[in-house]
């Protein structure tokens, strides 16, 4: 997995709640069998509308997505995370993420940051007023920082120590688990015979 320590970049204000993963990457893109090449599918339907914020030239090349609440609801498709990363996003900020999307993001090194809606609103206002404004997401300090005309904004965010450590180091979860293989074998040896098996009967 790609490690994440700190990132500074311009941000896109996506003022919309309940953005489901069908909007992030429509189902017909899911026929691909790779983890890359999804950038053109990102928000495909909305990007056909010239006024969609991702089409605004002042936000071209932005790497931070400032999303509304309940981002990533619906389908478990990890392709949504790959599409955001393929397009160039390094981090997504929202007041609430759907569980599966958040899990998928952290597995891929796309840092999802939960901030209070009021703070998201302040960041929206900042980048709407000045699209060149940069936002720093610092996983080491667990805080989001931005310079505003009225003074600096610093917002702490939570991420449990274990998830943070895996992101900072860019660790492979499967290798970590396999380091505890004897625990798995021990559990398996006590599994009752009546538990289900897919072996043909």
């Amino acid at each position: 997995m790609e490690a994440f320590t700190t990132h500074t970049g311009r941000a896109v204000p996506l003022r919309r709640s309940n953005v489901d993963t069908d909007q992030i990457i429509p189902a017909h893109w899911l026929k691909k069998v790779t983890r890359n090449g999804f950038e053109d599918g990102l928000f495909e339907a909305w990007r056909k509308d010239e006024s969609f914020v991702l089409n605004a030239p002042q936000y071209a090349g932005a790497t931070v997505l400032l999303a509304g609440s309940d981002f990533g609801t619906g389908s478990s498709r990890e392709h949504a995370v790959w599409a955001l990363q393929n397009y160039g996003f390094k981090t997504v900020i929202s007041s609430r993420f759907a569980d599966i999307f958040r899990g998928n993001s952290l597995k891929n090194g796309l840092l999802t940051v939960v901030l209070p809606q009021q703070t998201v609103e302040e960041l929206w206002q900042l980048v709407e007023a000045d699209p060149t404004a940069e936002i720093t997401v610092d996983l080491v300090a667990r805080e989001v920082r931005a310079d505003r005309p009225q003074g600096p904004l610093t917002a702490p965010f939570e991420l449990d120590d274990n998830a943070r450590w895996r992101l900072l180091e860019g660790l492979d979860d499967i290798s970590l688990t396999l380091a505890n293989e004897p625990d798995i074998a021990a559990f398996e040896s006590t599994r009752p015979s009546w538990k289900p098996s897919t072996a043909q009967v």
Partner: peptide
Amino acid sequence: GIGTSQVEHVLATQ
């Protein structure tokens, strides 16, 4: 439901 990275994790480790 799980994502594809977790599918791989379960395949490899159960």
